[in-house]
Amino acid sequence: MAEFDWPWQYNFPPFFTLQPNLATREKQLEAWRHLILEYHRAHKMHTLDITEAQNSPLFYNKSLKRKLSVETIFVVLEDLRKRGHLEWLDKQHQRCYVYWRTLEEWGKLIYKWASKNGMVNTVCTLYELTNGDDTRDEEFHGLEMDVLKKALQALENEGRAELIFFDENEGVKFF
């Protein structure tokens, strides 16, 4: 894993206690939002599992011996969800997608790539988009299939792409 540049808050013990003062809490949650998204972006991770998260360095600063409690993790994640950066995968709220870019942003990014590379009006497979050689330098390289589909659906709603199914393969056509 690449060395992650932790923000100063990560080494500030009160960061791991939910602040009762509302103004302070607002700033604290803002820092958490930022940290979680940056962390996932840096590690190209798209899902988060609550049980695992409690011991991941993200929520557990071992050198400081401070850990964000599960209740507080939920508060932070709920805050992310409200801003469209997170989506629960199950009703029990055990796993979730972390969108370090919102679906719209992903869609735009993919469309930008497609138009730059002359892929408009052609069909590419979804596998090509996430794992193809052409997209190796793009941020959406390695994007999870479900997230990709959701992003493309968002594009579809805007009328700039169409999802196509052929031979058990899935593809997309950009307009």
Binding site: F16, Q19, T24, R66
Partner: peptide
């Protein structure tokens, strides 16, 4: 003091400890 936003808390197994409120002072 916490209520006025001057300091913030760190509630751990070691007890309740108060720190300067760097959230409000360094981020804004």
């Amino acid at each position: 003091a916490e209520k006025s936003g001057f300091i913030c808390r760190d509630d751990s197994v070691e007890g309740l400890r108060f720190y300067k409120n760097r959230f409000l002072k360094e981020m804004s």
